[in-house]
Design a protein around this nucleic acid. Structure first.
Length: 97
DNA sequence: GAATTGACTCCGT
DNA sequence: TACGGAGCCAATT
C-alpha cells in the first residue's frame, strides 16, 4: 500500500492481489478499519469502481476526499477522476499481468 | 458450528 | 451510472 505513489490510487482488490492474497479485498478493508498506523496512506485505497468506500455522510468520507485532493487527485461526489482506480497495477508496480 | 457483519467485487438489468 | 442479487473471506457473536 505504501508503494502507491502520491497522487495515485489503488483498489482494495489490487492491494490484496499485490500482497499475494487474491480475492481478499475485504480483508484489506478490515485491516484498514483496525489500522492505527498514521503513516499508512489508507486514503489512496478506493473501491473497484473508483469510489470512496465510505457513505457520503461519514466523517471519514470528508477526510479521505480532502487528503486525496491535497495530493492533487480530483474527487467529485465521492468518485475519483483523472486516475485509473482499478487497473493501475502496471502503472504502479510495472507489472503487465 | 451456524449466523452475522463489513472501508468488497462481479454481473445482469 | 444506479440497483439488486450473489459470491466472497475472516472475525465476531
Amino acid at each position: 500500500m505504501r508503494a502507491i505513489p502520491r497522487g495515485e490510487v489503488a483498489g482494495y482488490g489490487e492491494v490484496a492481489r499485490r500482497a499475494g492474497l487474491p480475492g481478499r479485498a475485504r480483508m484489506v478493508a478490515r485491516l484498514l478499519s483496525h489500522n492505527e498506523d498514521p503513516t499508512l496512506p489508507w486514503h489512496r485505497v478506493l473501491r473497484s469502481d473508483g469510489r470512496i468506500a465510505f457513505p457520503p455522510d461519514a466523517p471519514e468520507f470528508a477526510e479521505q476526499s480532502q487528503r486525496l485532493r491535497a495530493e492533487g487527485v480530483r474527487v467529485e461526489a465521492g468518485r475519483v477522476r483523472g486516475v485509473r482506480a482499478a487497473t493501475l497495477d502496471e502503472q504502479i508496480w510495472g507489472v503487465p499481468d
